[in-house]
């Protein structure tokens, strides 16, 4: 029962706290352009590396170029969250297609498809992301496509497991006995019933994508100026931390809080769902 599910989530205090923090960060990111007192690329020559000054609207201080860090941190939030969500949507498409097909067909096809997943799993995938971004160029689009292209493995595993259990349920057997074709059964009966575990694994895959993006951007291999992201800001902040530690602390704190919140929310929702089945 859905009601029971949400009641159990509610009973899990860390999950609620995680979801609350996530909601707050998403709202802040969306409201960024309206609540920031300054534009992300306005340069204030008289305020290079200035500490936070609430009265003047520089809530998080300024960076080495005299730009408002509050505006830039929220812009970074928008980009990081967008990369996270887009990349995990791509991984969702690949992972669901791959996992559902493998699980549904079973037998040798399944063994072969999952063996490939195992092999890819043991590869140092961040390196392949870097390799891909070199060849494909460093636009935002290539970043989330490449990240999505390498983090679908978890999704494929989860979806396959779920498909195996769905495969022998009455409504699937019924559809088969009525002569429905395999692709039709997959699309109409299996995939629509995968949403529960898939949503939870999204909560685990999104932070993974955000982390990978931040990793690349920190090294200067990801999001490029004039765009920014938490990784870019943390990278700049780390270079500049002796003069302006706040330029490291704010974006770093936001990233850490987001990852923690995803972790809590994901664990809580998974517990609640495990309880149900």
């Amino acid at each position: 029962m859905a009601g029971g599910y949400w009641r159990r989530v509610g009973a899990n205090r860390t999950a609620v706290a995680g979801l609350a923090v996530l909601t707050a960060i998403v709202l802040l990111a969306l409201a960024g352009p309206w609540i920031s007192q300054h534009a992300i690329d306005d340069i204030f020559w008289d305020r290079i590396n200035a500490p936070p000054d609430v009265a003047a609207g520089f809530y998080f201080g300024t960076d080495v170029n005299g730009r408002d860090l509050f505006a830039r941190t929220l812009e970074g939030a928008r980009v990081s969250l967008m990369v996270g969500v887009s990349a995990s949507l791509i991984s969702l498409v690949i992972g669901v297609a791959w996992g559902a097909t493998a699980g549904y067909l079973g037998g040798r096809v399944d063994a072969l498809m999952m063996r490939l997943v195992d092999i890819l799993y043991s590869l140092p995938f961040v390196f392949f992301v870097i390799l891909l971004t070199i060849y494909a160029g460093r636009s935002l689009a290539t970043i989330f496509v490449t990240i999505g292209a390498v983090i679908w493995l978890d999704m494929a595993r989860i979806v396959r497991g779920q498909t195996l259990t769905l495969k022998h349920r009455e409504f699937v057997e019924a559809a088969r006995s009525l002569g429905a074709s395999d692709p039709r059964i997959l699309l109409r009966h299996i995939i629509p019933n995968l949403w529960g575990p898939v949503i939870i694994s999204m909560l685990l895959v999104i932070p993974d994508a955000i982390l990978t993006e931040s990793f690349l951007s920190f090294l200067g291999l990801g999001v490029q100026e004039p765009h920014t992201s938490w990784g870019v800001l943390i990278g700049d902040g780390a270079q500049n931390m002796m003069e302006a530690p706040w330029s490291l602390l704010f974006p770093g704190g936001f990233l850490a809080a987001t990852l923690l919140a995803f972790n809590f929310a994901g664990d809580g929702l998974r517990d609640a769902l495990d309880h149900r089945s």
């Binding site: 982390l211 931040s214 990793f215 920190f218 990784g231 943390i234 990278g235 902040g237 780390a238 931390m241 002796m242 530690p245 490291l248 770093g252 990233l255 850490a256 990852l259 923690l260 972790n263």
Partner: peptide
């Protein structure tokens, strides 16, 4: 959960 590239600069700081 706190990634390396946040922790390492913080430790240095």
């Amino acid at each position: 959960i706190v990634p390396n590239f946040v922790m390492a600069p913080l430790l240095t700081l």
